Amino acid sequence: MALKPTIYKLRISLSDLNRNYYDTLNLTIAQHPSETLERMMARVMAFCLNADPELCFTKGLSEVEQPDIWHKSLEQDTLLWIDVGEPTAERLKKAARSAKQVKVYSFNAKSSTWWQQLPSKSKQLPIIFWQFDWQEITRLASFVERTMDMSVTITEQSAYVTTSNNEIELHWQALS
């Protein structure tokens, strides 16, 4: 029998001062059986950084042909493709051909090694690469509850995240 995903419900009060975007996000997130809490929370933060009424989670790890998050037009063109993790050079090429804009959010302890080993041709694709701080993502993942309220305030290249019992400032940097 196949393992089923674990469902999380997050209510996020979002204030993105960089984009003057303010919203309350009610997210239902399916954590794939092979997905860590760290990766799931990196997906949540990538969603918050790009929040838009048309942005949505995809089947992610369950459907390898899709990104983790995307924004599709009414004509079903992919306007934004977001991958979380360390995608292969082939996947990056496919994303760059498939979408008008591509962003990658790397988050784990091996991110720097992945970036150094990524072929230079892949780094020259029209893709925006970001790296979350691994220790901060790990700490954020330790806050997770099946149902939770969060407040996320984004300014510059950091986000101040609070839950009912915890708080953290999360940072990211551009890879180039």
Rank of each mutant, 00 (worst) to 15 (best):
Q117T: 11
A95V: 06
L80W: 04
Q131L: 09
V144C: 09
K100R: 15
N50Q: 12
I137H: 00
A141Q: 04
Q124C: 08
L125I: 09
S112M: 12
L74V: 11
S73K: 09
W70I: 07
K72F: 13
H71K: 15
S120M: 12
H71S: 12
V84D: 03
S62D: 13
R91Y: 08
S142M: 07
W115R: 01
I82A: 08
E65H: 13
T58Y: 05
S73W: 07
F57L: 13
L55W: 02
Q76K: 15
I69R: 05
K59P: 00
A96R: 05
D68C: 04
E136H: 03
V102P: 01
Q135H: 14
L79S: 06
F47E: 01
L61G: 09
Y105Q: 05
F47N: 01
I127E: 03
L80P: 02
D133P: 00
E75G: 08
L55H: 06
S122K: 01
A51I: 07
I82M: 09
W70R: 07
W130L: 10
L125S: 08
E75Y: 11
I69C: 10
L74P: 02
K93E: 13
L140M: 10
A46F: 05
R139E: 14
K72R: 15
Q117E: 12
R43E: 10
F47R: 03
